[in-house]
């Protein structure tokens, strides 16, 4: 698989909630194979920055551009190239894991054979649990399923908010593996984290601080 040149350009981004200024003038530029960690204390706006990058939130200042092959993707289509794992993004509790996968796949035009599904589930350590309802899953298993759904369309940009949340040693190793494979393949990954071990996965670190 050949990966097109990716370039994420964050220019002078600042955000305020009502009268409260979170931060201002955050700028960086990353591309193929980069793994970036966004760090900062609780409430500093790491998650907000990820949402802004994903195009879910309009920044009050500055702009974010995701370019593919040198072409800037319009914000409305940006989410096609993005995978996102976040504690704020839940899956459907009353549906089974396979039904969740099929639904989110259908939104992107993906259809899956049974054998693919089995392989995908095994990849994140959920082998044989595909027909269980997500509501019956433990929080660590839900997190693994979120990973599966975030990477099943091979997104050029993967955003991970608290990547290790609720995961056991085995789960953390899977995440490490995913990040490693993406780096090798030339995809872009951004994590927002407070864990020193998770910071080590990243090639560079951007500290976010409240002004």
């Amino acid at each position: 698989m050949t990966v097109p040149p990716i370039c994420l350009d964050v220019r002078g981004v600042g955000h305020r909630f009502g009268a409260r200024l979170l931060y201002r003038d955050i700028s960086f530029s990353v591309g193929n194979g980069d793994v970036l960690a966004v760090t900062g204390h609780n409430g500093s706006g790491k998650s907000t920055l990820l949402k802004i990058i994903a195009g879910l939130l309009q920044p009050t200042e500055g702009s974010v551009e995701l370019a593919m092959n040198g072409e800037v993707t319009p914000p409305s289509r940006r989410s096609n190239f993005i995978g996102y794992v976040s504690p704020e993004m839940a899956l459907y509790q009353e549906l089974t894991a396979v039904e969740n996968i099929r639904f989110f796949g259908a939104l992107r035009g993906q259809t899956f054979e049974k054998i693919d599904l089995r392989e995908m589930l095994a990849h994140v350590g959920l082998k044989g649990r595909g027909s269980d309802r997500v509501g019956d899953y433990s929080s660590g298993m839900k997190q693994r399923l979120k990973y599966l759904i975030a990477i099943m369309h091979n997104p050029e940009l993967l955003l991970l908010d608290e990547p290790g949340a609720n995961l056991d040693v085995h789960g953390t190793r899977i995440v490490e593996q995913i990040i490693h494979e993406r780096r090798e393949a030339g995809f872009l990954t951004i994590l927002a984290t407070n864990e020193p071990e998770e910071e080590l996965w990243a090639g560079c670190v951007i500290p976010v601080a409240t002004v």
Partner: peptide, 25 residues
């Protein structure tokens, strides 16, 4: 994800809103 190949590719991203609406339905 080199080792795992899924039956999809990035060219299949452009779903029309009608297809998406039906999927949600």
């Amino acid at each position: 994800m080199g080792r795992v190949r899924y039956s999809c590719c990035n060219g299949m991203n452009d779903q029309t809103w009608i297809q998406q609406a039906l999927a949600l339905f």
